[in-house]
Design a protein around this nucleic acid. Structure first.
Length: 563
RNA sequence: AGCCGAGUCGUCUAACGGUAGGACAGCGGAUUCUGGUUCCGUAUGUGAGGGUUCGAUUCCUUCCUCGGCUGCCA
């Protein structure tokens, strides 16, 4: 595992913390938390938050908790809890013994609610949900008080007790904070504190039938854990006055909420709701489909934790809504894997080549460098013989200008092997080349020529008799618009799905040494890109995912000249 | 419309009253047994107006644009 070379960059949150440290606020303690709701898989946007929270703790000698914000039993599941733990660990972060659940605090939340009632700051409201909406007013008009707003403390206490005991049905009543129905901030117009949910919770079972709302619970969770800096995304900015109100009225330890802009990526949707739809509607194969921006998907695709961490460092942290170019993520992966991934030769779309002047039955073991960027990764031996496969794209009968590859009469280098010249093209009835007859120069063994003669093209290849079959999965963006939400009138993001986001090449040929490699090994297929061995691989049947292609200058030239 | 927040190269992000810088993407070139890597070079930016100041991306002000907020979701 290599260390990120990207140095931590400062940003406004770190500046706030540095100042707090200077002022000796919180006894110079820094304690953050990552508080996912277990209602879906983590995605690259969460990675930003994880890197931020755990990264800050590390940089300032503080601590970071992993806390599940599981206050809504109808949406949350154990499967998600497990996947989240796995993903955070995989990203390289350690919460040590500080794994917490909001549901562990339910009793404390209940006591706090009681306190609010006793202080005349909360009441049980029997308005229906529709009525509450009506009474709340609008963005421009103040709300009006509920007729139940002035129930006595004793009455509220008794009613809340009944709520807790299950004497009311869902929706019959709620507990509300008594704040200000005319506040310009709608969150302050007597927000809900507790609602009745007769659902079984994945951790507390049927012990409770009332569940606290986020605004009430979250600050208390932070307070209980003595969090110093409660970092969340921008949409909670309007909730901060409420966050502060609860903590102040309850007179408990008061963490500081700080909001930052969530990550958006081009060609990607990031909301859990939409990702859930892709999964539920079988548009992708699951949460870990390599086209998903989930941590599980990126992992299966072949992304490394190092690349993701570097990316999160490079994008910065700010308060303005922004959309990062997917190309930056890809750059981070290439940069990481270029240094670390062993090279291998894989022919994705094979074209047979017979080297007519190479002895039949002869096999040579040729030496190949595993990684030119890191000689300590050593060498391997690759079998060479009379009949080999090259890439179909590496031959053209009528090549355009600047085509360096094989064509009739042209000479190219076979990587690590010999120079060959194409003498004859054998075609099928439709005119498609099916086999090339070539001759090799025995004096160029290893890919060198003594006479200083140069060849422009170098091709990868595999020996037909030694090659191993493989399935290769080529991924493109799941969406064909930079902003998938940019859909026609009346259509949604699904109308922007890229029909070519997955291409399966079933009959590729790879060099034999890859048989021994374990799943999830990252490799560079020479001249193709970075690939990883998919867990679907079975004995005798390798499956590779392309994580990201190599930069392809030739493809770019072709694109530019065709325009 | 009310409240809150945000506007700096194409994108992301620095500059905290004193030379608008970096990264990615782009373009051009060199090197190369990967049309990869590496190296070198290059273009593009402070939303608009007014003010304060010797000096404004930075402070004030008006406007404009964008985002969030009217769940018993988080």
């Amino acid at each position: 595992m290599s260390e990120e070379k990207t140095q931590p960059v400062s940003h406004f949150i770190k500046e706030i913390i540095k100042k707090d440290l200077e002022d000796n606020k919180n006894g110079s303690r820094v304690h953050t938390r990552f508080p996912p709701e277990p209602n879906g898989y983590l995605h690259i946007g969460h990675a930003k938050s994880i890197c931020l929270n755990f990264g800050i703790a590390k940089e300032f000698n503080g601590l970071c908790n992993l806390r599940f914000d599981d206050t809504n039993p109808v949406k949350e599941e154990l499967e998600y809890v497990e996947s989240i733990k796995e993903d955070v660990r995989w990203l390289g972060f350690d919460w040590e013994d500080r794994l917490y659940f909001a549901s562990d605090y339910f009793e404390q939340f209940y006591q706090a609610a009681l306190q609010l009632i006793k202080d005349g700051l909360a009441y049980v409201d029997h308005l229906t949900a529709d009525q509450i909406r009506e009474y709340r007013g609008t963005l421009t008009q103040p709300g009006k008080p509920s007729p139940y707003r002035d129930r006595t403390i004793e009455e509220n206490l008794a009613l809340f007790e009944k709520m807790k005991n299950g004497d009311f049905e869902e929706g019959e009543c709620i507990l509300r904070a008594k704040i200000d129905m005319a506040s310009p901030n709608i969150n302050m117009r007597d927000p809900a504190v507790y609602r009745i949910l007769k659902a079984s919770h994945h951790r507390t079972g049927d012990k409770w039938c009332i569940y606290p709302m986020y605004d009430f619970a979250h600050g208390l969770e932070d307070s209980i854990e003595k969090i110093t800096h409660s970092i969340c995304t921008l949409e909670f900015e309007d909730h901060r006055p409420l966050y502060d109100w609860f903590l102040e009225k309850l007179n408990v330890f008061h963490p500081q909420q700080i909001e930052f802009a969530r990550l958006n990526l081009t060609y990607t949707v990031m909301s859990k709701r939409k990702l859930l739809r892709l999964v539920k509607e079988n548009i992708v194969s699951g949460w870990d489909d390599p086209r998903m921006p989930t941590i599980a998907g990126l992992r299966r695709r072949g992304y490394t934790p190092e690349a993701i961490r570097t990316f999160c460092e490079m994008i910065g942290v700010g308060k303005s809504e922004s959309t990062v170019d997917l190309a930056l993520l890809e750059y981070c992966l290439r940069e990481d894997l270029n240094k670390r991934a062993p090279r291998a030769m894989a022919v994705l779309r094979p074209l047979k080549v017979t080297i007519t002047n190479y002895p039949e039955g002869k096999v040579e073991q040729l030496e190949a460098l595993n990684n030119p960027e890191d000689e300590s990764m050593g060498v391997r031996m690759i079998p060479f013989s009379r009949v080999i496969y090259i890439e179909q794209d590496d031959f053209m009968e009528n090549p355009p200008k600047k085509y360096f590859r094989l064509s009739p009469g042209a000479e190219v280098r076979l990587k690590h092997a010999y120079y060959i010249t194409c003498d004859e093209v054998l075609k099928d009835s439709s005119g498609q080349p099916v086999e090339l007859l070539c001759s090799y120069d025995p004096a160029t063994k290893g890919g060198w020529s003594q006479d200083g003669r140069k060849v422009k093209g170098t091709l990868h290849w595999v020996s037909v008799d030694h090659a191993v079959d493989a399935e290769v999965r080529i991924y493109e963006n799941l969406f064909n618009k930079p902003n998938p939400e940019d859909a026609e009138e009346g259509k949604d993001f699904l109308s922007n799905l890229n029909p070519n986001s997955l291409e399966i090449i079933a009959d590729s040929k790879v060099e034999p040494g890859l048989m021994e490699m374990p799943a999830r090994t990252s490799l560079q297929f020479l001249r193709h890109g970075y690939f990883t061995i998919d867990p679907d691989s079975k004995n005798g049947k390798l499956v590779f995912n392309r994580a990201v292609s190599l930069k392809d200058t030739w493809a770019k030239i072709q694109r530019n000249t065709s325009e």
